[in-house]
Design a protein around this nucleic acid. Structure first.
Lengths: 304, 304
DNA sequence: ACACCCTGTGAAAGTAAGTTTCATCCGTGG
DNA sequence: CCACGGATGAAACTTACTTTCACAGGGTGT
């Protein structure tokens, strides 16, 4: 069939350009002109129409097609998308992203955004990596079996605690969050075997959180600590320790990264719990979603 | 010219897919079918011809073209190569990780954790990618110059709003957060030129948040919307629109991803504002950090 | 030198893909 | 109930892609 032995490029997803320049010398003059354009700027070539490219290479469309076949493509469109893909792949090494570091003083906002996103995303990933599924499992188990769950966190961790409480509540688990230590302590004193107390503290050194867990533990409840520091004081009053992995504690970028890391852990626990009773959780979620539906603006569409 | 206000995708090299899924709710039903196919498997869509894709989406070619225009492309070929490029860039969905999807019923916790972390991290990254630094800059500018800042968010977005308020407050900006709509409206009515109102709503359709921004705007304050959907109602009452890029809106894993995305944006704004007055912000942070120091557990064992 | 390939090439014809137009169908609001 | 406007697909149309074919050179054997 084919007169020329086609050299298939389908099996080398990573090196179309390399492939092409490799067999450049074996191509006919007119095809070489095409090839050179393609190799010189794949992204640009991908943007061109076949007629356009032919003109640029001072040849006819037919030759461009022949070129496509010569390099193992079915036709021009295929070449085009392969080129686009290839061109996209060979871009931006994460350049000047300051890895766990600070934001340089002169940075413009775009840089700041890139740095933050990088650090935030890392915190999430790394937290997940070092999370111990076995411990999570146990915590999920405890929560699923608990008749009451109390979550405590002070300051910034309070948001996370509150969030967790709300999520649990939403799938029908009886959960509480008390922003105030005294109330929390009082309530913790009423916990008992089979209940769960969760203490959230980035530093693991927040006196309040520790006290609350201590109290809960004394009453026989299972205690869970969520902290960034696996050897911090709070871990000593916790039956289960879950850790985040936000490396920086610098004021600037660090604060949010640790928050995100905490939320990620919460998310995992939540989904774990919800997965335990798929039907019930789903139902509960749907019901609660409907509940706020009337507070949504009408057709949700275009310009409402 | 264009009946629909095209939202150009040209300036966001990083997030066509994200961009599309953000626009999803604002598309017509038939276009949504197309969009879903595209988002589900961009690489595959890039391989298809327009007729093919139209058939797969159970619609006509005309609709596919309309879809292309709706998401800011010139035509189908352009969409195709952009998709190919996008698909190539993204690290392939590590194994069984359901990319913006659901958690498989039989999954064990380790899998769940991996999936969640993947989605959460992506939401953060993609949000940052599609954030427009110019808009951020303007918002930062407005906040820096504001004599008062009010943040509003209902439900889950309330946590984010509250968090933002607290952060701003901590670096010495006068910021408020009102969990209650009535209070928020009342307060918004007292805003004036030079003030800033920030409305946070994932769906962009929360009536309360819209009302608050409307009120604030009527009083001459600058209004900022933070939403996942660039064409949602809230964007119409906002001077500045910042978007997140949490692709899923499924109850389970999606909820948290969108939260993280929102927080990432908040973080960027916060750092931007703080960077404007490095010295003052740093000082403020140190002072506030010291303030809670006494609530930390003493010499704390290893890590205090 | 001449006839004969054989290869490379582009013009033109042919086919398929993409785009526009337009009539129809629906739901909405008067 | 009708007018209106958006959504939609059928069909007309345009552009892009592919195939066919004829022809120009340049070897090669007689």
């Amino acid at each position: 069939m084919a007169k020329k032995p086609k050299i298939s490029a389908s099996q080398e997803p990573g090196g179309l350009i390399v492939h092409i320049s490799g067999l450049l010398p074996s191509l006919s003059p007119a095809e070489q002109r095409v090839a050179r354009l393609v190799v010189a700027d794949p992204a640009d070539a991908a943007r061109r129409t076949i007629t356009d490219l032919a003109t640029a290479a001072e040849t006819s469309e037919a030759t461009v097609i022949r070129f496509c076949r010569s390099v193992g493509m079915d036709g021009y469109p295929q070449l085009r998308i392969r080129l686009a893909a290839e061109a996209a792949r060979r871009v931006e090494p994460p350049d000047a992203r300051v890895v766990g570091g600070d934001i340089p003083p002169g940075a413009d906002l775009a840089q700041i955004i890139a740095t933050i996103a990088f650090n935030d995303a890392r915190a999430v990933e790394e937290t997940a990596e070092q999370l111990d599924p076995a411990v999570c499992e146990q915590v999920v188990e405890a929560i699923v079996g608990a008749s009451r769950i109390e979550v405590y966190g002070a300051g910034a961790s309070g948001f996370v605690a509150s969030d967790f409480q709300q999520k649990l509540h939403r799938i029908g688990r009886t959960a509480f969050y008390f922003p105030d230590v005294h109330t929390a302590l009082t309530s913790a004193a009423l916990l008992g075997r089979g209940d769960v107390a969760v203490g959230i503290s980035h530093t693991g050194a927040t006196a309040d959180a520790i006290e609350v867990l201590e109290q809960a533990r004394a009453r026989g409840a299972a205690t869970v600590a969520l902290t960034n520091f696996p050897r911090s004081p709070i871990t000593e009053v916790a039956d289960f320790v879950l850790t985040t992995a936000a490396r920086e504690t610098t004021y600037r970028s660090g604060a949010m990264a640790s928050r995100l890391a905490q939320l990620t852990v919460i998310d995992c626990l939540f989904v774990g719990v919800a997965a335990r009773n798929r039907m019930r959780a789903r139902k509960a979620l749907e019901v609660t979603a409907e509940a706020v539906q009337t507070h949504r603006v009408g057709p949700g569409r275009r310009r409402a």
